[in-house]
């Protein structure tokens, strides 16, 4: 466990916590961007360069911008006057999340002694990834292409401004 790992883990967890806890939604969007960046750096720390840069491109470049657009289009940056930003049943949600974390943490710590201590650094070039994508994984690649096209058209149709009832 290196110093770099602790710094990146603290950055990611702090970003995630801030995204969930802050009151102003624009601040939440910025905090979640920090969490995405921390995750991308963790991917780079794990020698998964391609996944790390894909994470930066897709999440920081696209998803964060989409979230900011949605916040501004729905005027959600104004915090509600009645009550807080949390739901009435927040205690139940917190208990469920704590129980899930307790179970996951117990499972990890229980198996920790049997996990591999170290592994040689895998050498993966982008050429290998590209050949795998058009070779062994060509069918999932085509399905993802279809899904992205369908999602783009579907998102536009769902969010399109409906005119007044046609005569």
């Amino acid at each position: 466990m290196s110093f770099v790992f602790y710094v990146l883990a603290a950055l990611t967890i702090a970003g995630g916590l801030a995204a969930v806890l802050l009151r102003n939604l624009v601040h939440c969007a910025l905090a979640v961007t920090v969490a995405f960046a921390g995750l991308a750096l963790l991917f780079l720390d794990l020698d998964a360069q391609f996944a790390g840069f894909a994470q930066i491109l897709v999440y920081i470049g696209a998803v964060a911008i989409l979230v900011v657009f949605a916040i501004l289009l729905t005027r959600s940056s104004e915090t509600p006057k009645d009550g807080g930003v949390f739901s009435r049943t927040w205690l139940v949600g917190l208990a469920v999340a704590a129980a899930v974390f307790a179970m996951l943490g117990w499972a990890v710590l229980e198996t920790a002694p049997r996990l591999p201590q170290s592994a040689p650094v895998p050498v993966v070039t982008v050429q290998q990834i590209g050949q795998a994508l058009i070779g062994r994984y060509v069918l999932p690649l085509e399905i993802v292409a279809l899904l992205l096209t369908a999602a783009m058209i579907g998102a536009v149709i769902v969010a399109i401004h409906e005119k007044e009832e046609a005569k």
């Binding site: 969930v20 949600g93 974390f101």
Partner: peptide, 11 residues
């Protein structure tokens, strides 16, 4: 767990 807590508790 943080994401789950956010999805379950925020309004």
């Amino acid at each position: 767990s943080i994401g789950l807590a956010g999805a379950l508790t925020r309004r």
